[in-house]
């Protein structure tokens, strides 16, 4: 099999799995053996989707959720990368922050929502902060791990040429840890989506999570399904976007 054929086969297989899943769902639903009110066929969701786009501003809800994810993601990821790099480079900073980081890392961050609401009120900021909190530690720890995993030989090379600490950071620690940073960011993106939808369940105020929860509450099951599918697509596209950015930022990584 040539590389080209393999690439083609890969694409076909990638597309095949969701189509197959939808097909099975469709067949089971149409067979009439399950209650179509709760398990509607995917094809029957099409009209619902159209109505939601035309009459109910589905894209507005998507945009609102996306905004929350991206704002919280940025607020958590940027400090996470910075603190993670510092923890990787400096052992005193690592020794000082490590106990806090590992302890808080283990708490399901959504459990902190009441605290955040008390501190920040019920506005958008509270949602961003809870997302930021929930991803900060995974990004920081992953980044730190990336720095620590670097072969000390690279440090020796920089020192041998007379490089100072800043050189070491700029030319070794930062570029060398980018693959680990992206691993952390990919995990973080998943967390962010979960937490945003979670907060939209708990405190519905627009967004795809609210749409799912409220549709369920009024037994508007088809709308709920549309919300679920939209959430899945959003997660998929976000990861795809991140992969694209990684390919631009880390061109030196072995092709997978």
């Amino acid at each position: 099999m040539t590389a080209k054929q393999r690439r083609f086969a890969e694409i076909v297989l990638t597309i095949a799995s969701p189509i197959l899943l939808l097909l099975i769902w469709e067949l089971i639903s149409r067979s009439g053996r399950i209650d179509q009110r709760f398990w509607p066929a995917p094809s029957s969701l099409w009209d619902t989707t159209r109505t939601m786009v035309q009459d109910e501003d589905l894209f507005g809800e998507i945009w609102l959720t996306l905004e929350r994810i991206l704002a919280g993601f940025a607020m958590g990821a940027v400090p996470g990368i910075i603190i993670g790099l510092l923890m990787g480079i400096s052992w005193p900073i690592r020794a000082f922050l490590m106990p806090i980081a590992t302890a808080i890392y283990a708490i399901p961050k959504i459990a902190l929502l009441p605290l955040v609401l008390i501190a920040l009120g019920t506005g958008e900021m509270a949602r961003w902060v809870i997302v930021a909190l929930s991803i900060f530690f995974v990004v920081a720890l992953s980044t730190m791990g990336g720095v620590l995993a670097l072969d000390p030989i690279f440090t020796d090379v920089a020192r041998n040429f007379g490089g100072n600490r800043w050189t070491l950071f700029r030319t070794v620690a930062l570029p060398g840890s980018t693959p680990a940073i992206f691993t952390g960011l990919r995990l973080a993106l998943g967390f962010a989506l979960i937490v945003v939808v979670g907060t939209e369940f708990v405190r519905p105020n627009g967004g795809v999570g609210s749409l799912i929860w409220e549709s369920y509450s009024i037994l508007s099951i088809k709308k709920m399904y549309v919300g679920l599918i939209v959430t899945a697509l959003m997660g998929w596209l976000l990861v795809l976007g991140l992969d694209l950015i990684e390919r631009l930022v880390v061109p030196w990584r072995r092709a997978l």
Binding site: I153, F154, T167, T171, V172, G176, W252
Partner: peptide, 23 residues
């Protein structure tokens, strides 16, 4: 150095220029 001392994140040229760039 012994082993893999060439920076994987730099091109051949960037690697070769490294010491000069530091200077």
């Amino acid at each position: 150095f012994q082993g893999h001392s060439v920076f994987p994140w730099m091109t051949v040229r960037q690697n070769a220029e490294y010491g000069l760039a530091i200077r």
